[in-house]
Design a protein around this nucleic acid. Structure first.
Lengths: 167, 167
DNA sequence: CTAAACTTTCAATAATTATTGAAAGTTTGT
DNA sequence: ACAAACTTTCAATAATTATTGAAAGTTTAG
């Protein structure tokens, strides 16, 4: 496999995997492209490489910046804006985990808590609802806490923890 | 909040969260409904509760069975088929983790391996592609291995591990 | 201040994904 | 074997989500 083929394969695979970490295809592809680029890229270059429109590029770059995994880079003497992504996979994983927790998991935990706190009227179905949502709440909370511990640690704590876990 | 409201809130929240664990809305809603039901439900009952068509119900129940989290229950003397879901949250988490690994993560790891194994032609861009995809590959593999360890353990290992992790 | 260079916005459109419902298929009881 | 009771399939349609592109907005250089 040659460079060009490998590059395309990587971008399309990582792009279609976007759903796994909760972002859309274009967003994931832009991030992929920056991830393997040796230098910051301009909007023009991104549009050209991925064959997507200016509007699409602009919107998705913004979202990536909101996620905290892409940053604007101003190159002295140039008018255009350039973009780079976090290059360290662990740092990347941390950002993503943190954002997903904040955007999706925390709000759901809140609702599970509310639902599992309704008044027990003594009927079997109410008891079941309370019991099951409480179990889900506890599991979600434990997993979320774990994730947040991981993301708040120093550089190599993630790998160390995972390895410890495996052994 | 009364039972009915709490129930609807739970089903719709869990349903919209489907994307988080990689299944569609109807699938997630059917699973939610079964999860808090005190008895097995027939297709009729599911259609009625969720206001979805017979075809939709049939297809999504099948997918849930493929995922291994819903099972057909034959009630003696009755013609209809009834359905139940795994009621233990930990068992549920295990099934889901295992399926996602098999369906999505493993195939991506394979491609990352292929891409990171291309011949190093000495150029900076090839070196960068190899380096970055290798880093992703290693992270993905570690995380996947961890997940699979978790899912292959006895009943309470998950909670114990998570707690250990947190402390 | 003005014009050129560049970015953002957003209504229209395209692409994708989910849902319906009726016909075809299957199973069971008599 | 037949018919009733039930489930599955799948082409048509609806709903949702992503993408475009051109107009409006912004920034910078002179």
């Amino acid at each position: 496999m040659e460079y060009q083929e490998a590059k395309e394969k990587f971008i399309s695979t990582w792009g279609s995997l976007g759903s796994l970490w909760g972002i859309n295809k274009a967003m994931a592809q832009i991030q992929s492209l920056l991830f393997i680029s040796t230098k910051p890229l301009s909007m023009e270059e991104i549009m050209e490489e991925l064959k997507i429109s200016r509007g699409n590029t602009s919107m998705n770059l913004r979202q990536l910046m909101d996620w905290g995994i892409v940053t604007k880079e101003l190159i002295p003497g140039k008018r255009k804006e350039f973009f780079t992504t976090e290059k360290d996979v662990q740092e990347l994983a941390r950002h993503i985990a943190k954002e997903r927790s904040r955007r999706e998991i925390k709000p759901v935990i809140k609702i599970l808590k509310d639902v599992s706190s309704i008044k027990d009227d003594g009927t079997a179905k109410t008891k079941e609802l309370i019991k099951q949502t409480k179990a889900l709440h506890d599991l979600a909370e434990t997993a979320d806490t774990m994730m947040n511990r991981i993301v708040s640690q120093d550089q190599n704590w993630l790998t160390k923890s995972l390895l410890k876990f495996i052994k």
